[in-house]
Write a protein that binds this DNA or RNA. Sequence first.
DNA 1: CTGATGATGTTCT
DNA 2: GAACATCATCAGA
Length: 203
Amino acid sequence: MRLSRDFYTRNTILVARDLLGKILVYNEGETIYKGKIVETEAYIGSKDDGAHFHKGLTHRTRIIDEVGGHIYIYTIYGMYLMFNIVAEEKGVHGAVLIRAIEPIEGIEKMYKNRYKKPYKNPSRREIINLTNGPGKFVMAYGIKKELYGADLVTDHRIWVEDGEKLSQDEIVRSKRINIDYAEMGRDYLLRFYIKDNPFVSKK
DNA sequence: CTGATGATGTTCT
DNA sequence: GAACATCATCAGA
């Protein structure tokens, strides 16, 4: 079942944690992509200098002001798209970066999107490399910047479905990746991932 | 397996 | 003009 608004309008850290195990579905028209979310990071407003919107919103981050459930997509290093889900009520700023996914459906198409070659005798390494990073799963799904601002609660192309229930000891909490530039926020334990899942980007 | 390096262009100052 | 929530590739072990 598709997650409803009240899932997203909670505290950003809780949303990040509870997104683990949920299913991200993207219906591109020809292909339906499904995958289990296995790694997330929370970015919180005023107290987090690791967040893009720490000093207020800009044109790029304007969607963060919307009610939870909207999609925040941006380009990093000129080449890669990062996929985030806005959390909290309208006017409260928080977002969750989806860092890794375990493919469930549409795997052959993901393979073609990533490697530009036919799906044939894929190695285990190739399969894991499909979606084990924030830029990688976006490429695998074929997600474009046009989805900026889409609403996961109402959009007909993309949404999140309920998945398996995880027990407390399957969830690992740690520091976020590649935010050493943040003086305050670099040591916040705002990254969550599913223990021992091979698609998690980094131990 | 690990660590180092270069690619590449949008965003904000 | 600098910074950047990354990835692919390559060298070395």
